[in-house]
Design a protein around this nucleic acid. Structure first.
Lengths: 196, 196
DNA sequence: CATAAAAAATACTGATTAGTATGAAAAAGC
DNA sequence: GCTTTTTCATACTAATCAGTATTTTTTATG
């Protein structure tokens, strides 16, 4: 990777960490360049505005991560119900980057940036739709293989699972204690079993 | 109500509206006093800091509203499952103040202010716990009256319902279209029926 | 009405914000 | 090596921010 490309990636990664923990609006460019040891000239060479950097974080950091961790595993799945549970459980309890008190990066950005910033809304919508469609496809496969009841509606379940995940992440932020995750997961288990 | 008390209440109400639509951090005191037609001297006579005003909004606007609209109706309920659905459905589709694109005021504040502001966390936790406990009590009553299965765990269901609500509110913000609510409500109906 | 206290008005401050103007260094192309 | 383009560095600006200092007006109380 060229030195310039490295500078750009460093900015994106460090900025993302700051934004995840502090929020987008309250993370200043001065703070970003201080922690990255990059000058303002360099920053504005790579990004025309702060928002352009924000979009780049979604496209170049969040999107690939989501592809790798959620989309591909789910697509390869043979047992949707088991894998939905494992996916959520992994995200809540085991993912090494995510922390209870900081919630879900995508959920946070959605809450903070919509409905005022169209660019953010579009980029985030694309991200979320990707995840949603993958879940729907997985449910359809499960219905064909007999693991899921035929009368289950994929879209409804997808929204229900993802909503619950975003919501419990918000509870986690509030309580800063992953015991809420454990309670939630028990009920998720029960809900998912009812799809069989 | 004295003129002073009226000034204070006006500030709280208008500030709350601004914060609901724009977010807390991005709503400035200058903006609040501009829309309320109140001077800075008056504002800082009533509130020592911006955060003190924020807490007052939670205590004096959000809390009474929640008491009136969610707590009392649920406590009076004879049929928990039906009333849970109606409560969520009302909030999503009928409440005259709430708007799809702005999400849930309590959820928004939680996302934005935790984990950095302890005062906010405490005030919001109190609010949410009130709601949660009311749901749990209602479930217990439902179990006694035979409307809900005995093996249902109240706390799990409470978290599941509230998480789903917060989450779908965030989806609403993202899509700015209440069709996501309709899809969500269908699955909620199905989930709740499984508690019988 | 007189006085004291409460309530509000005005003008300011220092810090922080995103973004810019300009020039210097580094890298690439020939 | 020379030139051009890319990449980065420094110093600045105008706007906005939460909060303060001070004074004036309004209200309550005797």
């Amino acid at each position: 990777m060229s030195k310039a490309a490295n500078t750009r990636l460093t900015i994106l990664q460090k900025a993302f960490e700051l934004i995840y923990t502090k929020g987008y609006q309250t993370t200043s460019i001065d703070e970003i360049i201080a922690t990255t040891q990059v000058t303002k000239g360099a920053f504005y060479y790579h990004f025309k505005t702060k928002d352009e950097m924000g979009i780049a974080i979604i496209e170049e950091i969040l999107k690939p991560t989501m592809q790798e961790h959620f989309i591909q595993p789910t697509e390869a799945s043979q047992n949707p119900i088991e894998d939905f549970y494992n996916m959520i459980s992994y995200l809540l309890l085991e993912d090494p980057f995510l922390q209870v008190k900081y919630g879900c990066p995508v959920g946070n950005l959605t809450q903070e940036m919509t409905p005022w910033n169209n660019k953010f809304s579009e980029a985030l919508t694309e991200l979320v739709n990707l995840w949603k469609e993958t879940i729907i496809n997985s449910i359809e496969k499960g219905k064909e293989s007999g693991l899921i009841r035929k009368d289950v509606v994929g879209e409804q379940v997808a929204f229900f699972i993802l909503s619950g995940y975003w919501g419990i992440r918000n509870f986690g932020k509030l309580q800063n204690d992953n015991s809420v995750y454990l309670v939630y997961l028990k009920e998720l288990r029960s809900y998912l079993d009812n799809l069989k």
